[in-house]
Nucleic acid binder design. Sequence first.
DNA 1: CGACGTATTGACTCGGCTCAAAACCTGTGG
DNA 2: CCACAGGTTTTGAGCCGAGTCAATACGTCG
Lengths: 248, 248
Amino acid sequence: MASTASPSREELHIPTALDNQPLFRGMKAEFRDTFAQSSQIQILSKGTILFLQDDPAEWFYLILSGWVKLFTETMDGDEAVIDMVSNGHMIGDSAILEDGVHSFGAAAVEPVTVIRLPSNLLKQAISEDHQTALAMLGSLSRHRKRQSREIESLTLQNASQRIGCFLLRLCHPEQAMPIELTLPYDKSLIAARLGMKSETFSRALNKLRKETSLAIKGSMVTVSDLEELSGYVCSACSNEFPCKDLHG
Amino acid sequence: MASTASPSREELHIPTALDNQPLFRGMKAEFRDTFAQSSQIQILSKGTILFLQDDPAEWFYLILSGWVKLFTETMDGDEAVIDMVSNGHMIGDSAILEDGVHSFGAAAVEPVTVIRLPSNLLKQAISEDHQTALAMLGSLSRHRKRQSREIESLTLQNASQRIGCFLLRLCHPEQAMPIELTLPYDKSLIAARLGMKSETFSRALNKLRKETSLAIKGSMVTVSDLEELSGYVCSACSNEFPCKDLHG
DNA sequence: CGACGTATTGACTCGGCTCAAAACCTGTGG
DNA sequence: CCACAGGTTTTGAGCCGAGTCAATACGTCG
């Protein structure tokens, strides 16, 4: 399984890592420094829970490397994967805007490096520093749009189309053909992320391979005709191919 | 069909209506006044389009009465209902945080009263007035949570459970039994809102009636055993019954 | 090489969709 | 007050996509 690259030495330096985030970039130096001091790099092994739904939101996290699964669990033990996030994403930050409790759980699905930051400081920074509030607005709104897509996708696209859509988002339109992709995490996780069972994923991927010119070898996927793939996928979607935003 | 009450005379007074909104409540008087002057009450007939996906976001709206459907359309003409909103909700406001273009369409599904407000002024108010930015953050975050639920619901609950969930949200836990509900809009719209076809809605509602003690007469629904209903519904959900937030 | 986790395949079931017809409203005009 | 036209909702029959359960294949790591 292809894991994301380990963080470089630079990124392991907290102030540098924070400066790469829009949230901290425009923040008053006073707050940024306090953040740098009160934060801590954590290296998490596969399976580690960062927090669970309904936990009080004491910390939030900036991911430096590795994939993290965001999920909720039902009373009778079923799990819905809300999102998969990695490198450069923040998680758990939005809890401070709600009731100070996480509204979903987060778990490392492979070795993960994060910076752990105190939630109450973020709350303070947002309420006192206008730039920070604006940065937060930007991030939330990107999130909102992403989720709308998700809803659309779940209601309008079938399994093969959702998989195709997932693959398309791994393609950059300027790449030369054929495009060689490596699936970012386990197929069973992609399946869960796309709201289907892994058996269905397996069959639907095969169907997609037959109907658009795809080649699949383990976790390597070769796209030889972008047009064909996007035609197949995007007909059941409100956005045409180079549908920006995203990762994951 | 039960439509929401018409706006009272008070609410038709723009400054008063704005003051009832968290977004405007804490806003600097300077901005609030400009808003009041540059806004306009509109009475829209059933079917009127407020805006379409990809339209430049010139205006945003505050709903005073009636139901508005938020939707996206795919290339091949299918429609996904993202949300249904009414009375007290703002729509189209988040476009200014994105690329100044609406990421979904909005249409009145019955006679609707709205206040139309200029987007560029909101943009300015947010960037210059901290309180406004905070109010906006609150509203976006509520929205985010709502949508997460939506995703969970679509992936984990079957048709009958989604309908039950919809009904539960119309119940207030302190109401005396039996609870008499009026469906807020057409069944076919509820179906679309819940991501299913109306035939499926009809059958699934019948199934729900048989399995929990519900009575249905046209658009009137009587819930005689809340426990039973919430047991049936919430087992496949990560939140137990009095799941606050919402309307619609 | 053997063992474990992950992925695929097969056979079967079931929920939700489609298409088409009937039933039910609701409002209109005679 | 009734008859009719339009829309909405319900019902029926048949189909298809996705889920389930169980068995097999594949890959990787010890």
